[in-house]
Design a protein around this nucleic acid. Structure first.
Lengths: 157, 157
DNA sequence: TGCCCTAACTTGGCAATTCCAACTGAGGGT
DNA sequence: ACCCTCAGTTGGAATTGCCAAGTTAGGGCA
């Protein structure tokens, strides 16, 4: 890997949302992570399943590894040479919430006419799960009553 | 407005996440929505605050209105001509969860060195709020125990 | 009537990103 | 020595985004 030295913004925005989007807002990033959550890890899996151009895939995997979202691991299949695969880190797995938020939004306001293709559920029980806002002591909060407000270090957001 | 006839994908993906990203994954879209949640509504506010090129802003506002995320409303300031502003619809406001997810992720794994610029809190009380996964009867679920799984209509996700 | 002002856009040209298809390269098997 | 696979590269076209300058539609004011 000749390390295409990713050319993403060097400046770290004060706004957290902006920082997230600098990394995740590039085309294909979140879809790669979605597929990784489904258990995919190889270059060819991502490429074939997503239809992403291989040069772009190379660039994205590099960026995501650099950001600590994916981890590059070597593997070796029976009677084949050593190759590399890409696995979610803790940090990457925690993007599950972002993906669930995106999925819930589409399902609620723009559902697929062909039926429900993907569900969010508890592993053992299969109970349906959904996103909610809670206080630190676990009370469920009304979404409309929660705001994104300026914090202590806010200057211009 | 000559309606630049947005050229986004005509095909609706079966995958909800993919559908969300077709709309929201374009550069600036989520930042526009973030600023709208902060109460901004005018072309010049978005342009000046975000530093987004005005032609791109025009295109994005058009796309978001078309998608029902924003609503174009006319307003008139004391002694000025009629102009238009852009306001979140119900559908747009519900993207709050997506933005909170993005913010929480950055704050947890890549916090701003200068301190907390933005917080998520309940309006009346100022209590800190955070995203969680809950079952339909309101039980809090462990994030690690929740998966995005194939639904009844799944063919190839 | 005509001129100025403002805020919402357009336009044109250039830069960066993405797309696509074809190609390379590092081993391992035969 | 040659073939096979899979992870990438490479080169060129197309799309998207950026930037600065211009346009437009009224309302106020002279």
């Amino acid at each position: 890997m000749a390390s295409p030295r990713s050319t993403r913004p060097a400046t770290e925005h004060a706004c957290s949302i902006h920082r997230s989007l600098d990394l995740l807002g590039e085309k294909w990033s979140l879809l790669i992570i979605r597929n990784a959550l489904r258990g995919q890890s190889r270059f060819s899996e991502f490429r074939d399943e997503l239809g992403i151009p291989s040069d772009v895939l190379t660039a994205r995997l590099g960026t995501l590894v650099e950001a600590g979202v994916l981890e590059r691991r070597s593997y070796r299949e029976e009677g084949a040479r050593e190759r590399f695969s890409y696995h979610l880190t803790e940090r990457g797995r925690s993007l599950k919430l972002v993906l669930i938020a995106l999925q819930q939004w589409s399902d609620e306001y723009n559902p697929f006419p062909g039926g429900v293709v993907s569900v969010v559920q508890e592993v053992g029980t299969g109970r349906h799960a959904s996103l909610a806002l809670v206080s630190d002591d676990g009370d469920l909060l009304d979404e409309a009553a929660v705001e994104i407000a300026r914090g202590p270090a806010a200057r211009t957001w």
